[in-house]
Design a protein around this nucleic acid. Structure first.
Length: 654
RNA sequence: CGGGAAGUGGCGCAGUUUGGUUAGCGCGCUGCGUUCGGGACGCAGAGGUCGGGGGUUCAAAUCCCCCCUUCCCGACCA
């Protein structure tokens, strides 16, 4: 596959550039080009700043052609930082930059950077010089594209028989695709398969700003079904929804030390609004603990005000280095629950209760088996006492964190002064939890279940559960079949099945079969004249079975159960896959080889020392995904041989 | 931030090395017709600031300079 670009209409690309000066601008990091740095916050240095070229707040930035990047740590005396000190990462990057620039105490790094690289034109010349493979199309002698070449027919048939898709490469070794709707094979190039399936199934495409995404109707419908599954469980466990603002005054975020240190590098800040520089920059929320706990301070006086059990559905922004549709985007959608309690045990129970809600939704609704447990110190949420997580295994052998629930202790209550008078008449800090589940899980569903033909969606969350594809030749047949399809549609949808009739005239049935398989619809019904006459339909589940004719009455009566079969099959296959790819780690070397090979989950005793944890990560690029709660800590650490304090599950993760 | 690849109709690309008629091809799209049980075909059409800005030239998609954007790998990352 070549590069995959967001399909930006040229007109719009142009327009974007010549657009009117925006009323406010967002920059990454705590950067304001004309002002001294706001005190107290560390300066992240690893992110790019949007330049004045792309976002021309011209009146304010005139004369600042160079990138308006200010780096606190280039200044003398900045090393001590504010009261909160530096984030580790910022410090590290700082060292690196000083090397590059000969230690110059520069406040602004301008185009000098650029000269370190080869000019784009030169790079393009180099590329042009390299001979590429010839253009390949699936073309017969007549110049037609379609219609497999003679040799392909047998292969295609064999492929289909095996449940796979027809061979789609013209020559061995040619990785290019001839058609936008053909998918790369999952086994050959998983990342390419992922991007293509997301696009071709109509789930999402790239946005216009770096790392953003446009969630299309089909992808959003999938998310809405996940939302519904979560939301009704939140309500059932006593929570209410509310909404806090997108913008958070900068000072608010600074109060919890670990929290700000964890998030500072990936925060976006608004410094201009209404054409003027703001007195106090506004953070675009990366999460809402700061603003919510600030508010809880006003809401809580006595133990009678507790617990507070709130959730919000919203977007958050985190400036990420590398992004992938759904899995890691600069802006994403999620829910964040925030609760406050009078007693520690109660908060701890709440965190575990919501972890269980996440487990249930992942397994019962998304059909993704997950491991539950707590995170190691280095992986936990900044500001939490304990982070719990559910962790799933994707079909490429990498793990995906599917949801997190945090026991916050009194950390945020102390930072934001949330105190209450207890029954004994004493002032006490409240105990907190927070928990989140995001659109990332759309990516999880894709990667946990998808196959070479495309998505396979669990029926409980599939936007379309059943698609009816009518088949006909003449006009008479057409109306006969479409009438029968409409009757079937009415009957199924009357039973609560999400069903659609694909009556598009411009595509033939075969095309529709492939398209709906790509889109992961759990059950397809083929309905032709022969079926109508026999009062039957052909039923084709996306997972777990072949085609079979069924009497119309049976289709109507049996559909709910068949959908459940698909749901079960997907879960079963995912569970079998996980079990086949979960290994006991006897020692570091075995683990390294295994992870290097097929990936998977590697379980082994761990002494609890961060040094051992880092050593494994250095050697294998795997991290501790979870420390299962119920496992005993028998054995000795796979790294150092000391007695274990926990069993750890290791994997390379998304 | 380091390394690599790329920007030409909606999508995928050719053309750039060696500047020169009117910028091509496939898919998709529109209309009509024939088709329709596993990705149909014919005919006719529509659609392009060659990423942006400068420069060189009689002449620039093509040469030079600057800039922007995207993708991949690494570093980084809840």
């Amino acid at each position: 596959m070549g590069n995959i670009r967001p399909p930006i209409p040229r007109g719009q690309r142009h327009e974007r550039r010549s657009a009117k000066v925006p009323r406010c601008s967002t920059t990454s990091g705590w950067i304001s080009p004309r002002r001294p740095q706001a005190p107290g916050l560390p300066q992240p240095s690893r992110h790019r700043t949007m330049s004045s070229h792309a976002y021309p707040h011209r009146p304010l930035l005139r004369g600042h052609r160079a990138r308006p990047r200010l780096r606190r740590h280039h200044r003398p005396g900045a090393g001590g930082g504010g009261a909160l000190g530096y984030p580790r990462r910022a410090r590290h990057r700082g060292r690196r930059r000083r090397r590059l620039h000969g230690g110059a105490q520069r406040a602004r790094v301008g185009p000098a950077d650029r000269h370190l690289h080869r000019p784009a034109a030169a790079r393009q010349r180099d590329a042009a010089a390299a001979p590429g493979p010839g253009r390949v199309g699936r073309r017969g002698p007549s110049g037609r594209r379609r219609g497999p070449a003679a040799g392909d027919v047998a292969a295609g048939a064999a492929d289909r028989a095996a449940g796979g898709r027809r061979a789609r490469r013209d020559r061995p070794g040619d990785r290019r695709l001839t058609m936008p709707e053909r998918l790369p094979r999952q086994s050959e190039d998983f990342p390419a398969w992922y991007v293509e399936v997301v696009k071709q199934a109509g789930l999402a495409e790239h946005g216009y700003a770096r790392g953003t995404q446009i969630i299309k109707a089909y992808g959003y419908a999938l998310w809405e079904n996940m939302q519904a599954a979560l939301d009704r469980r939140f309500k059932a466990t006593g929570h209410e929804n509310l909404y806090f603002p997108l913008f958070i005054p900068q000072h608010m975020l600074e109060r919890e030390a670990e929290h700000v240190e964890g998030f500072a590098p990936e925060v976006a800040v608004v410094t201009y609004g209404g054409g003027e520089e703001l007195d106090e920059p506004l953070i675009v929320r990366p999460t809402s603990e700061a603003i919510i706990w600030s508010t809880y301070a006003r809401w809580v006086q006595s133990y009678r005000d507790l617990p507070l059990l709130y959730n919000q559905w919203c977007n958050v922004v985190r400036w990420e280095m590398r992004t992938r549709l759904f899995l890691r985007t600069s802006e994403f959608l999620w829910q964040e629950g925030h609760t406050a309690h009078a007693r520690a045990e109660e908060a701890r129970e709440e965190a575990l209760r919501m972890l269980e809600v996440y487990r249930e939704v992942a397994e019962d609704e998304l059909a993704i088996p997950v491991l539950t447990g707590r995170k190691s110190e280095s992986e936990k949420f900044p500001g939490a006492v304990t982070t719990y997580a559910i962790e799933g295994l994707m079909r490429d052998g990498r793990a995906l964190q599917c949801g997190t629930s945090h026991f916050l202790g009194q950390n945020f209550a102390r930072a934001y002064d949330v105190r209450f008078l207890n029954a004994a008449g004493e002032q006490e800090y409240a105990w907190g939890t927070s928990w989140g589940f995001s659109t990332r899980m759309v990516g999880g569903v894709i990667m946990a279940h998808g196959d070479d033909a495309g998505l396979r969606l669990p029926p409980r969350i599939a936007p379309v559960q059943v698609v009816i594809v009518p088949i006909y030749r003449s006009d008479a047949e057409r109306s006969e079949v479409l009438e029968a399809a409409a009757r079937l549609h009415a009957a199924l949808s009357g039973n609560g099945v999400r069903v659609r009739v694909d009556d598009r005239d411009q595509y033939r049935p075969g095309h529709k079969f492939n398209e709906w398989e790509l889109k992961g619809v759990p059950i397809r019904i083929e309905l032709g004249p022969r079926d109508v006459r026999a009062d039957q339909a052909v039923v084709v589940p996306r997972a777990g079975g072949g085609k079979r004719p069924e009497a119309t009455a049976a289709v109507i009566a049996g559909m709910a159960a068949w959908l459940e079969d698909v749901q079960r099959t997907l879960y079963r296959e995912a569970l079998d896959f996980r079990e086949a790819n979960t290994h006991e780690a006897p020692d570091l070397a075995t683990m390294r080889d295994g992870i290097e090979g097929d990936g998977g989950l590697w379980v082994g005793p761990w002494c609890g020392d961060e040094e051992c944890e880092h050593k494994v990560t250095e050697e294998t690029r795997a991290t501790i995904r979870v420390l299962p709660l119920d496992d005993d800590a028998a054995g000795t650490c796979v790294v150092c041989g000391r007695p274990a304090t926990a069993r750890a599950v290791w994997a390379r993760a998304y």
